[in-house]
């Protein structure tokens, strides 16, 4: 019984240490385990599959700051690789100041892998302040929202943007978000301008947006690191990319950490009830 009581009073630093070990071992062993693909991930993947190459463009908005890049960077990279592998054009933008730099890093990496040219195969629009106003401007005329790209190239000098006027020429709008900005995209781009909005969100936010998925207001959703791993799995399965990315390599570590947390929760509860039953009851209670 004493052991159970001691387990119930585990030093939190020991818990952190156990968690670190539980994460490091699978990362070092780097086992290749297949990830089951959820329908919400498939919804986005199939929407991009339906786009005709070298014609209309996918819009990806990097709406997050570096503190959430661990979960959202792999998503952005996976979707960019999918688009570039299929020769689908991409418009990259951000509603967050720091998101622009993260977007630039991701698009530069994916573009170099697939030898894509700025202004022709993709356009980096960067950050524009205004939130909902920018989303509505894109719905009216994208030129109003982005008179020039991130590097100062005027809109009319971007060959890719020649036939892109508003959401009607953008079959998929993907927001990679760490905040309620998904709701803003759904409300203004989706509801008002009938754009096809999809989201890639942090795992914390994922349950909040499942209702939008169920009503069809979101055509797909990537949920946390697992969503990114699922997308990477689809890219490998379809032959668009030859190796899995950061998210897939993390899935074993996530699983082992989850098992450890479940075990700790069980131990904590057993210890709680064991100690509770042995405590003498106070008078009058």
């Amino acid at each position: 019984m004493k052991i159970i009581e001691k387990m119930g009073r585990l030093d939190r630093r020991l818990v952190y240490l156990l968690l670190t070990v539980a994460v490091i071992i699978p990362l070092v062993m780097s086992l290749d385990v297949r990830t089951h693909v959820d329908r919400s991930t498939l919804g986005l993947f199939q929407a991009i599959e339906r786009i005709e190459p070298n014609n209309k463009a996918v819009m990806i908005s990097f709406d997050y700051s570096p503190d959430m890049s661990a979960e959202l960077d792999p998503m952005g990279l996976a979707v960019l690789r999918h688009c570039f592998a299929r020769n689908v054009r991409v418009i990259v933008m951000s509603m967050y100041i720091q998101g622009a730099a993260l977007a630039e890093r991701a698009v530069a990496q994916a573009a170099s892998e697939f030898h894509k040219r700025p202004g022709v195969d993709y356009v980096m629009m960067g950050y524009r302040p205004g939130g909902a106003v920018i989303i509505m401007n894109i719905g009216e005329n994208i030129r109003k929202a982005f008179p020039a790209d991130y590097y100062g190239t005027p809109f009319d000098s971007l060959p890719m943007m020649k036939n892109i006027r508003n959401y009607q020429d953008i079959p998929v709008v993907l927001t990679l978000a760490s905040s309620g900005v998904v709701g803003t995209w759904v409300i203004y781009a989706g509801t008002r301008y009938k754009a096809n909005v999809a989201s890639g969100v942090t795992a914390v936010m994922a349950p909040d947006y499942y209702p939008f998925l169920q009503t069809g207001q979101l055509l797909g959703q990537l949920s946390g690191m697992k969503g990114a791993a699922e997308y990477e799995q689809l890219l490998v399965d379809k032959g668009y990319y030859d190796k899995k990315g950061l998210a897939s390599r993390s899935m074993n570590a996530i699983s082992s950490a989850h098992i450890l947390i479940i075990v700790l929760i069980l131990i904590g509860n057993i210890a709680y009830f064991a100690v509770k039953d042995r405590k003498p009851k106070r008078e009058g209670t």
């Binding site: 994460v23 795992a203 690191m225 390599r249 993390s250 950490a257």
Partner: peptide, 13 residues
Amino acid sequence: VMARVSLLIARIQ
């Protein structure tokens, strides 16, 4: 839990 563990994993990676 998954989100927080993901952040830890990314830094350890």
